[in-house]
């Protein structure tokens, strides 16, 4: 008698519980569906705008990004004179803030000082002058006069024959390195110094890369950190100068 009662209860339990669980889950999922914009914890999908953390206590919620809004070039970021043609095809034009100068060899520019009196020799050859220039940049398909204009040596020549000044050499580089050029304009490629929310210096391609041999040369690393439990191993400090900035490095015993 007793056994059958328990048996009945168990049967009822086994029938009722899944139903309860089902209802519970439906309620939860129903709730989740009501809030489609709710962030899913743990879902940090790569490169997704949702991955940008929202401020928990932002004083100005109106400033939060509207991710669906198409990005447009802000007038502050484009130089209208230069970007007229470049800006059309991309979201961003040439950044306005760079003030860096191309590293022209002192005393050698303008090139017309010497070249005005010379007749252009378009023959590919070992140069008698400019021996410091080592071309290691797609040498098979390139020679001096592909980039330097044969008739106006103070200018660079684009593939379409347009002449550009040395200060705008990025147009020349951008002919082949289009994706890098695009990243450089947005600030992803290259180096910026100055103020993150104000005027900044934007390095030109040629400030970091040697245009004739653009691959970076290996560098000597600065000292490694002191090993733990190594006692008092730092003898003192010394300074090194990096791009005009003095930084202090340890000297180990």
């Amino acid at each position: 008698m007793k056994k059958t009662v328990i048996g009945k209860r168990l049967t009822m339990f086994s029938v009722v519980m899944p139903a309860v669980i089902l209802v519970f889950f439906l309620t939860i999922t129903g709730r989740a569906e009501e809030k489609p914009g709710a962030p899913v914890p743990g879902n940090h999908s790569q490169a997704s705008p949702q991955a940008v953390p929202q401020p928990t206590a932002s004083p100005q919620p109106a400033n939060q990004p509207n991710v669906s809004k198409p990005l447009s070039a802000t007038p502050q970021q484009t130089d209208n004179a230069n970007a007229a043609d470049a800006g059309k095809e991309t979201r961003f034009g040439i950044p306005k803030f760079f003030t860096t100068k191309p590293p022209l060899t002192p005393g050698i520019f303008p090139c017309s000082q010497c070249h005005a009196a010379m007749t252009p020799n378009k023959q590919r050859r070992e140069l008698g002058f400019h021996q410091d220039v080592v071309l290691n940049h797609a040498t098979k398909q390139r020679w001096c006069l592909d980039c330097h204009d044969a008739n106006d040596r103070d200018k660079l020549k684009l593939a379409n024959g347009d002449l550009i000044p040395f200060t705008e050499s990025y147009f020349l580089c951008g002919q082949c390195h289009g994706n890098i050029f695009r990243d450089w304009k947005t600030g992803i490629h290259g180096k910026r110094i100055g103020y993150w929310n104000g005027e900044k210096q934007y390095y030109l391609c040629v400030n970091c890369h040697n245009q004739h041999s653009p691959k970076f040369q290996p560098l000597k690393p600065l000292p490694m950190p002191a090993r733990p439990h190594s006692g008092d191993v730092v003898k003192g400090t010394t300074s090194v100068d990096i791009e005009g900035k003095k930084i202090y490095i340890p000297v180990y015993k």
């Binding site: 509207n66 802000t74 947005t186 600030g187 992803i188």
Partner: peptide, 18 residues
């Protein structure tokens, strides 16, 4: 600034493998 859609940090998050 992550809240500025035109900042380089936002652009790289949106266009690169992060």
């Amino acid at each position: 600034n992550l809240l500025d859609p035109a900042s380089e940090i936002r652009l790289l998050i949106e266009t690169k493998r992060v």
